[in-house]
C-alpha cells in the first residue's frame, strides 16, 4: 500500500535497532500483513491453518515479530484501523458487524462511483479477516502489548501519536506515513536487517517544501486514494509544485483534473484521529497464557512459536545497563 514513488522524495537512512529507543506506534494492519504475506509464506500451510482451515498465521507472525522490539527495549503500540470516517469507533461494538457495515458502505460507494471511499474501504475489508482481527487483539492483550483503536486510518492515528509526543516513531512500510505528517517513520521492522528511518523534516528541507506541498506533490503522483496524473513522477511533481505553488495551480496550468482532489488532500491534512487513547509502556506479558492461547486453543505447532516465546521471555527478564546510567 502507499505510493512507492514517494521513496524517491523521502529522506531515508538505515538505522540499527540498537539506536532506536522509546515507543513505536505500529500500523498494526500493515505490520501483520507483512507477516501474513512474507514470513509465513515459507512455512507449509498446515502449520498456519487450524484443522477446519481457519488461518492463524497472524499468531505465528506476532510471536516471531515482537521479540525484535522487546530485545531492544522498544515498546510497540499496535494501532488498528478503525471505522470509516463518518462513524465513531465506539458506536461499533462487534467487529463482524463493523465489517458488514464496511461492506454495505463499499457497495454504496461503488454504486456512486466514489473512488476515494472505495479505496478507503477496500483497504480495510480485504486486508485482515475477522478472525485475524480478533485473535490478534486477544494475543496482544495476553502479551500486554498496548493496542490503540484508530477512528479511521491506523497510520494517520500513529502519526498523530508521534506528533503529540506519545510515541517516538510510526512503524509502517507505507510511505504515506510522511503525508500524514509523521515526523519519524520506521520501515522494514519485519525484515532481517536494519530498519529504515524516514525523516519528514529532512525531507521537507531537502526539497524546500511545506508539508502541504508534499501532500500536493503526492496527489499528483497518485496515492492510495487517487490515481495520479499520467506522466507525472516524483521529479515532475516536485518541479511542478515548485513552479506553481500548489495542487490546483499545477492542475490548472496543465489542464488536468483529479477526481475528489480536495477530499484526498483533506484526508492527509486533517485526518480523522483521536486523542482518546492511553497505554502503559511497562509490559508484563503473561507468557504462559499466551502459549496456551496459541498452541492449545488455536492448535499452532509449538515448534513454530517456541523460539519466539523464548526470545520474548529472555528479553523481558534481562535488564539493560542503561538502567544504571
Amino acid at each position: 500500500m502507499g505510493n512507492a514513488a514517494l521513496r524517491d522524495i523521502a529522506v531515508i537512512e538505515d538505522v540499527p535497532f540498537a539506536d532506536i529507543e522509546g515507543v513505536v506506534a505500529v500500523d498494526a494492519h500493515n505490520w501483520l500483513y507483512r507477516y501474513l504475506t512474507t514470513t509465513v509464506k515459507w512455512t507449509s500451510s498446515e502449520k498456519y491453518t487450524t484443522d477446519d482451515g481457519t488461518e492463524v498465521a497472524n499468531l505465528i507472525g506476532i510471536i516471531q515479530g515482537l521479540p525484535r522490539f522487546f530485545e531492544h527495549d522498544i515498546v510497540p503500540v499496535m494501532v488498528f484501523d478503525g471505522g470509516p470516517s463518518e462513524l465513531k469507533a465506539d458506536e461499533i461494538a462487534d467487529r463482524r458487524e463493523q465489517r458488514e457495515v464496511y461492506k454495505a458502505q463499499l457497495e454504496r460507494a461503488r454504486e456512486e462511483g466514489d473512488t476515494v471511499a472505495i479505496a478507503q474501504l477496500e483497504s480495510r475489508t480485504q486486508r485482515l479477516t475477522p478472525t485475524i482481527q480478533e485473535t490478534s487483539r486477544e494475543l496482544l492483550e495476553l502479551l500486554d502489548v498496548p493496542v490503540v483503536e484508530a477512528p479511521a486510518e491506523g497510520e494517520a492515528q500513529a502519526a498523530h501519536m508521534v506528533k503529540r509526543g506519545d510515541a517516538d516513531y510510526v512503524g509502517s512500510e507505507d510511505y504515506d506515513a510522511l503525508l500524514f505528517g509523521a515526523p519519524y517513520t520506521l520501515r522494514q521492522l519485519t525484515s532481517k536487517g536494519d530498519p529504515e528511518l524516514m525523516d519528514l523534516e529532512a525531507t521537507l528541507t531537502t526539497h524546500d517544501l511545506t508539508l502541504e506541498q508534499l501532500i500536493d506533490a503526492a496527489i499528483l503522483i497518485g496515492t492510495d486514494f487517487n490515481e495520479g496524473i499520467r506522466g507525472i513522477g516524483p521529479k515532475t511533481a516536485l518541479s511542478e509544485i515548485a513552479e506553481h505553488g500548489d495542487l490546483w495551480s499545477v492542475l490548472e496550468a496543465r489542464g488536468e483534473h483529479i477526481e475528489h482532489g480536495d477530499r484526498v488532500r483533506q484526508l492527509f491534512r486533517d485526518p480523522n484521529v483521536t486523542d482518546e487513547y492511553e497505554f502503559e509502556t511497562t509490559l508484563e506479558p503473561d507468557l504462559e497464557a499466551a502459549r496456551k492461547y496459541v498452541v492449545d486453543e488455536w492448535g499452532v505447532d509449538a515448534g513454530e512459536v517456541e523460539r519466539g516465546f523464548e526470545r520474548i521471555e529472555a528479553s523481558v527478564v534481562q535488564t539493560g545497563l542503561d538502567s544504571w546510567t
Partner: peptide, 9 residues
C-alpha cells in the same frame, strides 16, 4: 564497547 542489547559492556 557495549553489545547491541546493552546488556554487557
Amino acid at each position: 564497547a557495549v553489545d547491541p542489547a546493552n546488556v554487557g559492556m
